[in-house]
Design a protein around this nucleic acid. Structure first.
Lengths: 247, 247
DNA sequence: CTATAAATTATCATAAAGTGATAACTTAGT
DNA sequence: ACTAAGTTATCACTTTATGATAATTTATAG
């Protein structure tokens, strides 16, 4: 293993299912002598990216809390989008989850989430959890304005050509209408409604979306939500343009 | 520069004051040829630790959002402490900020924060912001139970021997009473009240604290708060012990 | 307090990877 | 199509990482 990947491979071993690793476990998992792992773990812990627990166990370190704060304080999408999402949730008239998500490698990650107090349901979308790029309104709204080169790379994960061309026409429709609605693609019984948020200068491909119970969604409500989302996405895009001009 | 530090030095260039860096700026700042920086930035962006913005600018990447979620989902202090802090803030009868903080290298970092809705004041304590280790109740409560070897390393930053011995007797008092109160050490007009949270098995040295306006604090209220904090810190310590036994 | 095992660090010859000057290539704007 | 800025590729040269082993430290039990 070489370069930064040597470190990130170790960091990505830590998961909710397995948040604690001993040196010997890492050594086994990566088929690398423990003397090397010891050295690497010391480097990571000196910088706060892992912390030594007892019994030779390690867990992720507080550096991630520090860098996460930096993201919240400086990331244009979070910075400009969080207040808007806040007001969006306040004027919601049905139980829902609101999400700002962006492209993250070959997946989509939620950068800000808000939920109404009365949510009886739970959406898969959650700040920091990578989601598939080809399914759900949130992801499709992001794909809609992606340069074709990058889009093509994403499409290689599609099951077949039929799915690919169906998706392409759906993306065309998103560009025309400015929004996307999908039913049960991510979570059964839930409907996702999303609008693209793009800023080329900042290289931001993102979307703003609401996830609601399908049983709560009348045609009238759907029309109102999509209008709100389209308006908000345009407003956020303007904010981002102003930000990129000012900084 | 060698090892992981080569990467973390670059990552730590990004700050709220300067969240955008070009390759040539980094090249200058680190006195390193840009061809090397380009290579390193590519590695970092492939793993999501930085993102390319336009005009040769880079910003921190979404990997930190992903890893922060991991911390929230798996870190014992956050996991067991967050609900307690929630209930602490709910039963607060005056404007305040509640904080769970832990040792982070030679500083102290807040891992969870909660504030009452009506906070007219603002405390320096905030999730993810490293704070000095020698000042304020939050930090002193953490130092109180630190093994003397580590404590000595911390004390080297003290201004003089007088300060050192004053601190040592204060720490002794914290061990006796189970809590610490400081006035205006971090923010003028604010009082910090804290109790240590220690779990040796998990190598956790932390504290739970409340920050309030000094004008709101009568003797009676102070007695009530410190009692609450001591109780809560012991309860949390128990939870951590149970966690370490179960995992 | 000592004995024992486990965890961690140090050592060092070898192999591998990073470095940086340069050139080649892309991309965006005029 | 031209230009300039940004980015990637190349490669001889260093420097650093590697990993088997030994030495040391730490933790635990007797």
């Amino acid at each position: 293993m070489r370069g930064f990947k040597r470190y990130s491979t170790i960091l990505r071993l830590f998961s909710p299912q397995r948040p604690n690793w001993t040196v010997s476990e890492i050594s086994q998992a990566l088929d690398t002598p423990s003397s090397s792992i010891y050295r690497t773990m010391r480097e990571l812990s000196e910088e706060g990216f892992v912390e030594a627990s007892a019994d030779a166990h390690y867990r992720l370190g507080s550096a991630f809390i520090e860098f996460d704060r930096m993201m919240r304080k400086t990331d244009p999408l979070v910075l400009k989008g969080a207040p808007l999402l806040q007001s969006l949730i306040e004027q919601a008239e049905l139980p829902c989850v609101c999400v700002l998500a962006r492209l993250y490698g070959d997946r989509v990650i939620c950068a800000v989430d808000e939920k109404t107090g009365n949510t009886a349901f739970s959406s898969s979308y959650e700040r920091g959890l990578p989601m598939p790029v080809l399914y759900g309104a949130t992801s499709k709204a992001i794909l809609a304005h992606l340069p074709k080169r990058r889009l093509d790379a994403m499409l290689s994960d599609a099951p077949d050509d039929a799915a690919r061309s169906a998706l392409l026409s759906q993306l065309k429709e998103i560009r025309r209408t400015g929004y996307c609605v999908t039913r049960g693609e991510v979570d059964a019984q839930l409907v996702g409604l999303a609008a693209p948020v793009v800023n080329k200068d900042l290289a931001i491909w993102a979307s703003v979306s609401m996830i609601v119970n399908s049983s709560d969604l009348t045609e009238e409500i759907e029309a109102r939500i999509t209008l709100t989302l389209v308006t908000l996405s345009q407003f956020l895009a303007q904010k981002l343009t102003a930000y990129s001009a000012g900084a």
